[in-house]
Computed example of a mutant assay.
Amino acid sequence: MDLSDIRRRYCMGGLRRADLPSDPLDLFETWLKQAIEAKLPDPTAMTIATVDASGQPFQRIVLLKHVDADGMIFYTNLGSRKAEQLGHNPKISLHFPWHMMERQVHVTGQVEKLSTLEVMKYFSSRPKESQIAAWASKQSQRLSTRQALESKFMELKQKFAKGEVPIPTFWGGYRVKINSIEFWQGGDHRLHDRFLYQRDGDNAWQIERLAP
């Protein structure tokens, strides 16, 4: 297989300075809504990048669960590798790969842990089996076999069969306080459109066009 021959044209449309709102979250929410309406697989999926204590970057995919003027929210096991790394270094990068619409969004920022009330509210909204799975998995820890994981899940499913599933003390969420957002729209002849929103010293958004 010759990977160098794999390419395609990007010709679904451009992004112009005149199209940009003053607040990048307005454009992000428009693009997210369009991705959902276009029935893209997992439109809320985002790659999150963190760095360990030695400076080694790590990436994984999680789901965006909320976005507003205060930031972007995701949930995870607080004993996971990502949580440990964010404890060392709260800086984070998010990437939304909406390939079918020839779009990408890249976010940088810092995380803060969600309040207990915010975590309780979301956890209680999850399907019961998802709640149980949160208990069953010691995320990022070594696992002998898949059967061990499934057995633990079934054991907990029986335990919580007749009642509510309590929130694990090791489960929570993060809010990403946004420092920058870059919007990428594919363009013909590889002349892609890229616009970067960054906060200035007065916490206002400044917009720059970047070369592709």
Rank of each mutant, 00 (worst) to 15 (best):
S93A: 15
S93Y: 05
L94W: 07
L94A: 08
H95M: 09
F96M: 00
F96G: 11
F96I: 09
P97I: 06
W98A: 00
H99E: 08
M100Y: 06
M100W: 10
M100C: 13
M101K: 08
E102S: 09
E102Y: 11
E102F: 01
R103P: 00
Q104F: 03
Q104M: 13
V105S: 08
V105C: 02
V105F: 00
H106T: 01
H106V: 14
H106Y: 12
V107W: 01
T108R: 06
T108Y: 10
T108W: 01
G109Q: 08
Q110V: 07
V111H: 07
V111E: 08
K113P: 09
K113Q: 14
K113N: 05
S115R: 04
T116L: 15
T116P: 08
E118D: 15
V119Q: 10
V119K: 10
V119Y: 02
M120S: 14
M120I: 04
K121I: 11
K121C: 03
Y122L: 08
Y122A: 05
F123W: 06
S124M: 03
S124L: 10
S125Y: 03
S125C: 00
P127V: 02
K128Q: 13
K128G: 07
E129V: 04
S130C: 10
S130V: 07
I132N: 07
A133R: 02
A134H: 05
A134K: 08
W135L: 09
W135E: 08
A136W: 05
K138G: 01
K138S: 10
Q139E: 02
Q139A: 11
Q139K: 11
S140L: 07
S140V: 08
S140C: 09
R142K: 10
R142H: 08
R142Q: 12
L143H: 07
L143R: 14
L143I: 15
S144Q: 12
S144E: 14
S144K: 14
R146H: 14
R146E: 06
R146T: 09
Q147H: 06
L149M: 14
L149Q: 13
E150P: 07
E150N: 08
E150L: 14
S151L: 11
S151T: 15
S151I: 05
F153T: 12
F153M: 07
F153I: 13
E155Q: 15
L156E: 01
L156M: 12
K157H: 12
K157C: 09
K157G: 09
K157V: 04
Q158N: 15
Q158C: 13
K159Y: 13
A161L: 10
A161E: 13
A161N: 11
A161Q: 07
K162N: 04
V165G: 08
V165A: 05
V165R: 04
P166L: 09
P166Q: 00
P168Y: 11
P168I: 12
T169G: 03
F170H: 05
W171P: 02
W171Q: 00
W171G: 09
G172C: 01
G172N: 04
G173A: 05
R175N: 12
R175L: 13
V176P: 03
V176W: 00
K177A: 07
K177F: 04
I178C: 01
I178H: 05
I178Y: 05
